[in-house]
Structure formats: C-alpha cells, structure tokens
C-alpha cells in the first residue's frame, strides 16, 4: 500500500479535535505521527506519515481539509550526500531515533531512513552540510 508524508497545519481553534482517530476509524488509514507541536488555542503543526489505498488516502485528505486543516504533501526528504560526508559522526550525537548511527567496526555512517522522524537536527549539526532537505 502506498505511503505518503503529510504536513498538517492546525488552525488555533481546531487543535483539540481528534482527527487522527477519524483517519483510522472512518478512512482505514494507518497514521504514523513523525512530529507534532500542538497547543490549545495556538496554530499547530504535524508531520504525519499515512499508509492506505489511493482512494482512502484521497478521502482522508478531503476529511482533514473539511476540518479546517491545511494539508500539504511533505515534499521534503532528508538526503545524505556521501561525497561530502567525512564520517565524522557528529550527526549521530543529535539523532534521537538512531536513524544515523556509526557502524561498530568501521565507524562509518549508516543512515536508516525508516527510523528518521524528519526532525532536521542533523541538517544543522552536520559540519560538512552533507545532510540536506530536498524538495
């Protein structure tokens, strides 16, 4: 089943409605919240990965928009430029989900994108600017 990443913006008054619950129950989508910053009465942001059929994905997005959320496909991707990387390992010190680790023997950088939550901490930590958000 296709998997997509969405960037959701919650308007201030919408933030406490349980939209994720409805994505699961009414649209048969499997959501995985990568990042969320939602406070009452403030604009909120969420980066969400959803897995589901094309039809339920379209219906789910329409539902979110109907709830007043701004939905955009998170076009960004974290890209590691192997040519620029010098395997210093500094990014591993800020990668909380352990998507960036060092091989125990070779001490070379290993990037497991499945574990990445797109927090972008590595982007500013990398002294070689070898890790970028691509659009």
């Amino acid at each position: 089943m296709p998997r997509k990443r969405l960037d959701l913006t919650f308007p201030p008054r919408q933030s406490l409605k349980p939209v994720i619950y409805h994505l699961v129950k009414d649209y048969d989508l499997v959501p995985n919240i990568l990042r969320a910053q939602i406070h009452p009465a403030q604009e909120g942001r969420m980066v969400l990965e959803v897995t589901g059929t094309k039809e339920s994905y379209a219906a789910g997005v329409a539902f979110l928009e109907g709830q007043g959320l701004t939905v955009s496909e998170a076009a960004s991707d974290i890209v590691l430029d192997q040519e620029k990387c010098v395997d210093c390992g500094l990014c591993t010190a800020v990668c909380k989900p352990d998507a960036l680790t060092l091989d125990p023997e070779a001490q070379t950088l290993v990037f497991d994108k499945d574990k990445c939550v797109y927090c972008e901490a590595c982007v500013i930590a990398c002294p070689r600017r070898a890790i970028t958000l691509s659009f």
Partner: peptide, 11 residues
Amino acid sequence: VPTGPISSLPV
C-alpha cells in the same frame, strides 16, 4: 548519555 564523535575515525 549517548555519545557522538567529531573526529573521523575512518579517515
């Protein structure tokens, strides 16, 4: 406390 190096051991 998790650690991270700055000096590249492979190089």
